[in-house]
Computed example of a mutant assay.
Amino acid sequence: MKAIAQDVLQHLSRWLNEENDQPVWLCTIVATVGSSPRPVGAMLACNHRGEQVGSLSGGCVEDDLLARLEAGTLSAERPTMIEYGVTAEENERLGLPCGGRLHVLVETLCHSDLDWVEAVLQALEARRCVQRQCSLANGHSEVSNVQRFHPLSMDENALTQCFGPSQRMLLVGAGQLSQSLAELATAMDYEVIVTDPRQRMLDAWEGPDVQRQAGMPDDAVRALADDDHSVIITLTHDPRIDDMALMEALETRAWYVGALGSARTTEKRLQRLRQLDVPESAIDRLHAPVGLSIGSKTPVEIAVSIMAQVTQLRVARERSE
């Protein structure tokens, strides 16, 4: 979801730089009732040429919005709220679930909005969280730094919307399991980076088109995954590679560190980490054997168990914040 938001903002930035006072619109789902095809916070951007990026429903709602925008029926002076799914007939026409409603806030942006758009993009590039507050009276937006990502909220005066960096997953090892895990993680909106000191493994990569980095894994951990939006998982089965990465990973701010291996392999790994003077408080952070115990055997099944555990813990973490 966050990577999609960044894509929307990048298009907005380009269009606002190019459009020469032609209208550019940002449409955001600010509330839902019942089932909905997209969550609160989902965004769609479009311009006067009919180009669009993002999604609110997967088709019919977008078409209706574009028709309204092209007809000029919405206010350009202040954000406008549109409700979809008021009647059963409208639900059927728009392809919305029975009883589902979407509340969409439509903003007409101009060149002056480029300041807040680029401020958000700069924060995301630096992997920081920021908050945008948009006045419902005049559409003016201000951006401020925040420590944590918070769900979108709105009252009678303003829309408050957080933007945070994508979850980053650093995979140590470029084997078959890493390829399966990268497939699932990218489909779930993670930014995946694969590191392996063995160039032959990187050369044989047949997984999705993700960043691949040669060199020692501890260097990659320090440079790429030392923040609380990161996940680090070792997958090589080679203690010379995995242990070096784990020693560094357990000292980072990464919120999840996992290691592949059986219970017996894990016990030997913990012994080695203690012999290397890794603090017990750091070792307690390690999820090993990695993934939920679902009886998985094949690479795809193991990847599913890992993503299930990561998802379970991420959701619990977000709810507690």
Rank of each mutant, 00 (worst) to 15 (best):
M1A: 05
K2R: 13
I4A: 10
L9T: 01
Q10V: 00
H11E: 05
L12E: 09
R14K: 07
E19P: 00
Q22Y: 02
C27N: 06
I29V: 15
V30E: 07
A31K: 12
G34M: 02
P37Y: 05
P37G: 03
P37F: 01
P39Y: 08
M43A: 04
M43R: 04
Q52S: 13
Q52R: 15
Q52K: 15
G54C: 11
S57H: 06
G58Y: 12
G58R: 14
G59F: 13
V61C: 08
E62P: 13
E62G: 05
D64G: 00
L65A: 03
L66S: 01
A67H: 01
E70C: 03
E70S: 03
A71H: 07
T73L: 08
L74N: 04
S75Q: 01
E89T: 09
R93T: 07
P97R: 05
G99W: 08
G100L: 02
G100K: 02
R101E: 01
H103L: 08
L105I: 01
V106I: 03
E107C: 04
E107D: 01
L114M: 00
V117L: 02
V117D: 13
E118P: 00
E118Q: 15
L121E: 15
A126R: 14
R127P: 08
Q131T: 11
S135N: 06
A137M: 00
N138K: 06
S144H: 13
N145Y: 04
V146L: 13
S153Y: 08
D155E: 09
N157G: 09
N157P: 00
L159G: 09
T160R: 14
F163T: 14
G164Q: 09
G164N: 12
P165T: 10
R168T: 11
G175E: 05
Q176M: 10
S178L: 02
S178P: 02
S178R: 03
Q179H: 06
L184D: 12
L184A: 07
T186E: 15
A187H: 07
M188H: 08
M188D: 09
P197T: 05
E206R: 15
G207K: 10
D209W: 09
Q211V: 14
Q211T: 15
A214Y: 13
D218R: 04
D218K: 00
D219E: 00
V221C: 04
L224V: 00
I233N: 04
L235D: 03
T236Q: 05
D238K: 04
P239T: 03
D243S: 03
D243Y: 02
M244N: 03
A249L: 11
R253Q: 15
R253L: 13
A254G: 12
A254P: 15
W255F: 15
V257Y: 08
G258E: 02
A259F: 06
K268S: 14
R272M: 09
D277Q: 10
D277G: 01
P279L: 12
E280C: 08
A282T: 02
A282M: 13
R285V: 12
S293M: 08
I294G: 12
S296K: 04
K297R: 08
K297H: 10
K297E: 01
E301A: 12
E301V: 11
I302T: 05
I306A: 14
Q309Y: 14
V310E: 14
A316V: 07
E318G: 07
